[in-house]
């Protein structure tokens, strides 16, 4: 599969470009306004960045541990509440709280994996699924219990909208988008260029083989889960300024994130980012093309098409 990739890459790009062009023309014809189309593209990219951001941690954990982490959204919410509290009580800039939330979530991830999930590794996959589902429910309801059901929000003083080509974008969303790009680059470098990253990839490719060459597989599991959770933490903090924070806010992103993970190729961090962008664009342009329908209709049409044509995902290669 990898051997014929260079050959088909150009063709694939050409097809993709043609599809994009057709969609843009149709959207323009449907709405009759260039501004609507450029706004849809801009919003789609920014939103897609956020989807990718949420999906990155999820795909990392799936690729290495083979666990579908149903607690991901809830962990993201923990970070949001961290940001809300630090910003409103300690008066920190919301983005500065990243220095607290990401490490804190890293710690929580480590504790969860070493204390709970590691005990179920190697047993039936349903065990891990039920465990993460349970952890997610537990976290969500503890948050509901301790912070109440009142929605909260984080105020950012400098949230002026940016303008380009008649389209507007909130600064907070642009920052989240850039954060997604940064995080993807960071994870990529970590996985490809460091010894730890190489070990993680070895464990993902073949846990038994990795153990034979002296890698502590369980430690790598803990580390990977913690990294994935830290990503959820970063995502939570980065989206906090433009969402209404409630105990279930993280869950909102979860369904889309699962779609993005499968679309991008499970375990592929860059695939998650590209998949996120694709879904974001599809949702927005789909909304313009079919104004009376749910924007998710277009998303799931694309999803089914991709599954049909490339069941392993866009960047599929199980890592």
């Amino acid at each position: 599969m990898t051997r014929r990739a260079p050959l088909s890459l150009a063709a694939r790009l050409a097809v993709a470009a043609a599809v994009v062009a057709v969609v843009l023309v149709l959207a323009y014809a449907r709405s009759g306004s260039g501004i609507v189309v450029s706004q849809a593209v801009l919003t789609g990219l920014l939103l897609g960045g956020v989807y990718g951001l949420v999906a990155m941690g999820l795909t990392l954990i799936f690729g290495v541990l083979d666990i579908v982490n149903f607690a991901h959204g809830a962990l993201m919410t923990v970070a949001m509440y961290g940001t809300v509290l630090l910003a409103s009580h300690a008066g920190l800039d919301p983005y500065l709280t990243l220095l607290v939330t990401a490490p804190a979530l890293f710690g929580i991830g480590m504790a969860l994996q070493s204390g709970l999930i590691n005990r179920t590794m190697g047993s039936s996959l349903a065990n891990q699924l039920l465990l993460t589902l349970g952890i997610g429910l537990l976290i969500e309801n503890v948050l509901l219990l301790s912070f109440g059901s009142e929605p909260r929000s984080v105020a950012v003083g400098y949230a002026a909208p940016l303008r380009a080509f008649g389209a507007v974008a909130d600064l907070t969303r642009v920052i989240a988008f850039l954060g997604a790009l940064g995080l993807a680059a960071l994870l990529y470098l970590l996985l490809q260029r460091t010894r730890v990253g190489t070990a993680i990839r070895a464990v993902a490719a073949n846990p038994d083989g990795a153990q034979l060459v002296g890698i502590d597989v369980r430690r790598m599991y803990v580390l990977t889960f913690a990294l994935g959770t830290a990503c959820a933490g970063a995502a939570g903090t980065l989206v906090a300024p433009f969402v209404t924070v409630e105990a279930t806010t993280g869950e909102l992103f979860n369904i889309i994130a699962f779609v993005v993970v499968v679309l991008g190729g499970m375990g592929n961090v860059v695939g998650a980012l590209v998949g996120g962008l694709l879904i974001g664009l599809t949702e927005q342009l789909g909304g313009v093309l079919l104004p009376e329908q749910s924007p998710l209709l277009a998303v799931f049409v694309v999803f089914v098409l991709v599954l049909f044509l490339r069941p392993q995902g866009l960047f599929g290669r199980s890592s």
Binding site: S33, V36, T43, L46, L252, I256, V288
Partner: peptide
């Protein structure tokens, strides 16, 4: 699960 209505308002 809507998280942005900018495009809709632009319409």
């Amino acid at each position: 699960n809507v998280s942005d209505l900018t495009t809709e308002i632009t319409q």
